[in-house]
Write a protein that binds this DNA or RNA. Structure first.
Lengths: 261, 261
DNA sequence: CAGGGTTACTCGTATAGACGAGTGGGCAAG
DNA sequence: CTTGCCCACTCGTCTATACGAGTAACCCTG
């Protein structure tokens, strides 16, 4: 490695910017400028302690800022590394178009295969349960619902988990209530059952994950989640499904096409 | 206040979960259960030091977890408070529909007024500049562009800032190059100039903000941003505008309506 | 009573030190 | 050469202490 002073500069004792922020600033700038590249190891805490002449806690404080920004991550026993940006999956707004359902396989599998990734689905769980206040409202005052939970992985990495909720009068006893909903997924089954889909509504939020979400999606520190709630309406205007999805924000770009009319 | 033990429980020394995580867990749970309500003050560091019998740094470490999750925020000299959730602004996908442009006022102003909020726009800057690689690609290999920057505030709080980029051959010398683009905004001007809008493409990402974004949007710790890039296409398929928007994620819910066809 | 200063309490920043635990390379024994 | 241990280096956790600085309430003074 090149010497630290050539990359990192010195502190300004007259500045009223806190020392640990100054250090974080210098590291951030070095990363932005490409002095430290993706996946590369930053100087160790001990090295920075020596370089700046500060205590270890101060250096750790600096790292914790960068970690919170999602710029770096620490590996116990190894070092602190510039976080590599995983390839993002682009979700087009027409991914639920009817023509895509004719294929048979689920949208996730088809798209991942096309992108050359290895897709997996796990944590499959299908059960009847009490509807939450929010779900009940969206589905039009139902009490109990069929819930289909699953988690999606791309090349071994969990990227999203989702729960579909359907009114019991629609789903109970159908293939929708089976672990495998069959070719084309539950939307194909809904249409076969006479619930012709008219449109979807999607609501998108972004926020920091709960500890449970961090665990399920194996999220690094400083990675938000995208929370997407999609409601499917049939041609009679009835909400026939609500899909609640939480996605690792560093794994997705959502793309929508809107008419200008 | 009720006594701490009745709200917070004790540590488990046999657990291999770090003490500061256990404390964070207990505080988080107390918040989730509503034992501490929005805007309410948490026990001070000193109180928690005494209650748990740990050092102050350990307590601060716990707070820093919750801060990173966006659950609490500290105010110097006052205390640590449960972060209140500001009301969110819902953005419907038809907000650029032609019929909304007839009104005169910009979409932001109209919607905010309707919601009973006080809208403001500032940091207005209109200038010609070199197109970034990304913008150039989106606009079809232009070198220089007209950039219109502005920041939006709701009831005094900055909630988003945006930059519109337009090819010079379209915008130069028109009212689009003026600080005030006139009634209906630049989309109305584009149509008057013969660039009839056909559709928009929106790309959505979520990530942690840069320090500059934290400053511009006065973001609290643990609040991600939603990064939205909208490209407007005219009826000839040409990209006539790219709008790059960064929004405070705790201030917005994006809503899209998609046909099922 | 009005004004201003003191004071107690709050979080912010920084130091110094200790021990634990994961990682990986080198060395020694088999 | 292979195996296995040891050690150096890494970050993780925690303690104890010190001083700075923002806040707000109280009290004293004029």
């Amino acid at each position: 490695m090149t010497s630290l002073p050539s990359v990192l500069g010195t502190l300004d004792p007259t500045s009223d910017r806190a020392v640990f922020r100054q250090i974080a600033d210098q590291l951030r700038e070095a990363i932005d400028r490409g002095r430290f590249k993706e996946g590369e190891k930053l100087p160790s805490e001990a090295e920075l302690v020596e370089h700046y002449g500060v205590s270890r806690m101060t250096v750790r404080n600096s790292f914790s800022i960068l970690t919170g920004e999602g710029l770096v991550h620490a590996e116990h026993g190894k070092g602190v590394f510039v976080r590599p940006r995983p390839p993002v999956r682009r979700l087009a707004s027409d991914r639920f178009a009817r023509r895509h359902r004719e294929q048979g396989k689920s949208a996730f599998i088809v798209e991942a295969d096309a992108a050359g990734s290895h897709p997996q689905v796990d944590s499959l769980e299908v059960k009847e349960e009490k509807a939450s206040q929010d779900i009940s409202t969206r589905l039009g005052s139902v009490r109990r619902v069929l819930a289909r939970r699953r988690r999606y992985l791309l090349d071994g990495r969990p990227v999203e988990f989702a729960t579909s909720y359907l009114p019991l009068d629609i789903a109970r006893g159908t293939q929708i209530a089976e672990p495998n909903p069959g070719p084309g997924g539950i939307y194909a089954r809904l249409e076969e059952l006479g619930h012709h889909l008219d449109h979807f509504e999607e609501e998108i939020r972004a926020r920091m994950p709960s500890p449970a979400e961090v665990k399920t999606l194996r999220l690094a520190a400083g990675v938000p989640v995208i929370h997407l709630v999609r409601t499917a309406f049939d041609t009679e205007g009835r909400a026939v499904e609500v899909c609640d999805t939480v996605m690792a924000a560093d794994a997705y770009v959502l793309s929508y096409q809107l008419p200008a009319t």
